[in-house]
């Protein structure tokens, strides 16, 4: 079924200029994904020799964390556990007006239109979101035995795709959910555990340096996270941080 939609989209030339909303009409189809609907709009705009709307996308299958739209006030839109690229138009009504904004957070400056610079998250990962190994031949998968339960718990946190929706959802612009997911993912595994003390301190320090806010335990992040990363990740990180600061080996 075809759908006639009104789009209220944030347009901004670059991070120095003031942005504003513009209205567009688009005819979409209920089977399209949200990004395909924007592709249709952009095709129309190009045909009219107008600037297409800049938005980020890559995998379009919910695994890369590149898409970053605030749709009607919600990062990644209305569906729980879904990225914007995996959101289908059937969840909207014919004739609806949809407001599309970039992810809003002080640490995510707008680059253009709906594109924001999320490299602050990369720097948080660079500060410690890794394990130090000599990368040689790929290791035998089961060289280090890990119980199934433990592997699954770690994997829950590893599901974070680093999209930054948690930061955009947070009224404080905090990146605690993202950072804690990395800390728990690595800390629960034997390969990552050895470096946990350094990791958690370095990552928290970088997170603070980037100007992310301080978590008020509101839980907006957990509700908007497309990978359903839970608040207990933050509790895990706080515990690891206290332990590292007060009883870490020097």
């Amino acid at each position: 079924m075809d759908m006639n939609l009104k789009l209220k989209i944030w347009r901004q030339t670059n991070n120095k200029s003031e942005g504003h909303f513009e209205m567009y009409d688009v005819v979409a189809n209920e089977h399209m994904s949200f990004l395909e609907m924007l592709d249709v709009l952009n095709e129309d705009l190009v045909n009219q020799r107008k600037q297409p709307v800049a938005f980020e996308h890559d995998c379009r299958e919910g695994i890369c964390g590149t898409c970053s739209l605030t749709i009607n006030g919600q990062p990644h839109g209305p569906n729980a556990g879904t990225t914007a690229c995996q959101l289908h138009m059937r969840f909207f009504k014919d004739g609806e007006t949809i407001t599309i904004e970039p992810f809003r957070a002080g640490a995510f400056p707008v680059v253009k239109d709906l594109v924001v610079d999320r490299s602050a998250l990369d720097r948080v990962v660079q500060a410690g979101g890794f394990i130090s190994v000599n990368a040689g031949q790929a290791q035998d998968g089961n060289a280090i035995p890990i119980e199934k339960e433990r592997a699954s718990q770690s994997f829950e946190s590893a599901a974070c795709i680093g999209c930054g929706a948690c930061v955009a959802a947070c009224p404080n612009g905090s990146a605690m959910l993202f950072t804690s997911a990395k800390v728990r993912h690595l800390g629960l595994l034997p390969q990552g555990e050895v470096e946990e003390e350094q990791r958690v301190q370095n990552m928290v320090a970088q997170m603070d340096k980037e100007g992310f806010g301080m978590c008020s335990n509101i839980g907006a992040c957990e509700a908007e996270c497309p990978k359903e990363i839970q608040l207990y990740n933050i509790a895990y990180m706080n515990r690891a941080y206290f332990k590292a600061v007060f009883s870490g080996e020097e």
Partner: peptide
């Protein structure tokens, strides 16, 4: 006041997220 600055510009549409009590 730190968090207000960290948030920066507020979204035009308020997040209807039920977790934000």
């Amino acid at each position: 006041s730190y968090n207000r600055k960290a948030k920066g510009q507020q979204p035009a549409v308020t997040n209807p997220n039920v977790r934000i009590t």
